[in-house]
């Protein structure tokens, strides 16, 4: 039993609890608002609802078309994440292999890609996507989501690959592995935690992505959840109660996924590294 380390200290726990309080205040507000009548949101924004209206959730679900939008979100986000990770794995692996050569500077060129300011290019982007038949169908946001995260993913993965001991790769080469086996059999299990982490990040950022699908999707049937949430904004007045109810409904799957995948990225690396 460790007695005097940071993980058990009282000060440490206090900070955690304080931060948890900081975290919960807005969430309390979201939950409380989602149960109110529209007028009460204005007259009593912070208090508990006078008559909690569970019907808000039903209204949000139907008017917000949540079933359909969730379906689109899941397809777009799921595909984007898988493609994104696949691409990141391949690119990172190759970059790692050529890191010592001159052409390894390609890595830095990719990273710099993340510093471009999006926004000005939207007209060109729209025209480009239209020419490639990626406009107003699910493929557009999927590919856009799959490519946007590349610099970040490569950045993390290459860094991770660098920390792996060279002995494993050398042992694999001696055993006569070709590259594909090397990547999939040897390295993949080792970087599982990094992949799970990147996967969660990619999922969350794609799920919440607004501007891309907004520009690329015209057909309301194809909208994702963030686009659907805009339905509750008027020109001046926002229908907070329905919007927050919709948000609570749509956050549930994300929390479930995070819980499910947490085990992957916090488990200590087993066997391979030490042995």
């Amino acid at each position: 039993m460790r007695k005097r380390n940071v993980t058990g200290s009282v000060g440490g726990r206090l900070v955690v609890y304080a931060y948890a309080l900081f975290l919960i205040a807005p969430i309390y507000f979201i939950i409380v608002t989602s149960l109110k009548m529209a007028g009460e949101v204005t007259t009593n924004p912070l208090g508990l609802p006078e008559y909690p209206i569970i019907g808000n959730f039903v209204e949000a679900f139907t008017r917000g078309n949540i079933a359909k939008y969730s379906f689109n979100s899941v397809i777009i986000t799921g595909s984007a994440v898988i493609l994104s990770l696949l691409n990141a794995i391949i690119v990172s692996f190759c970059l790692h292999k050529i890191a010592h050569k001159k052409i390894g500077v390609l890595f830095y060129a990719i990273i710099m890609g993340s510093m471009l300011i999006p926004g000005v290019g939207f007209v060109t982007l729209l025209q480009l996507y239209m020419k490639l038949h990626l406009y107003n169908n699910l493929l557009g946001p999927i590919l856009m989501g799959a490519t946007t995260g590349l610099p970040f993913n490569v950045f993390i993965l290459v860094g991770f690959l660098r920390t792996l001991p060279k002995e494993i790769s050398e042992a694999a080469t001696i055993d006569g592995c070709n590259d594909r086996q090397h990547l999939f059999l040897v390295l993949l299990p080792l970087i599982k935690s990094a992949l799970a982490t990147l996967g969660i990040f990619a999922f969350v950022s794609n799920w919440n992505s607004l501007l891309g699908p907004l520009i690329l999707l015209k057909n309301k049937e194809l909208f994702t959840i963030p686009l659907g949430l805009l339905d509750f904004r008027g020109t001046y007045t926002v229908e907070y109660n329905y919007m927050f109810a919709a948000i609570l409904i749509t956050s549930v799957p994300l929390v479930v996924i995070y819980l499910r995948f947490q085990s992957y990225f916090v488990e200590a690396l087993s066997g391979g590294v030490k042995g």
Binding site: L116, I117, G121, F122, T124, L125, L128, L143
Partner: peptide, 10 residues
């Protein structure tokens, strides 16, 4: 093509 080129416009 999809993610960098349009934004080089800047």
């Amino acid at each position: 093509v999809l993610s960098i080129w349009p934004h080089l416009e800047v």
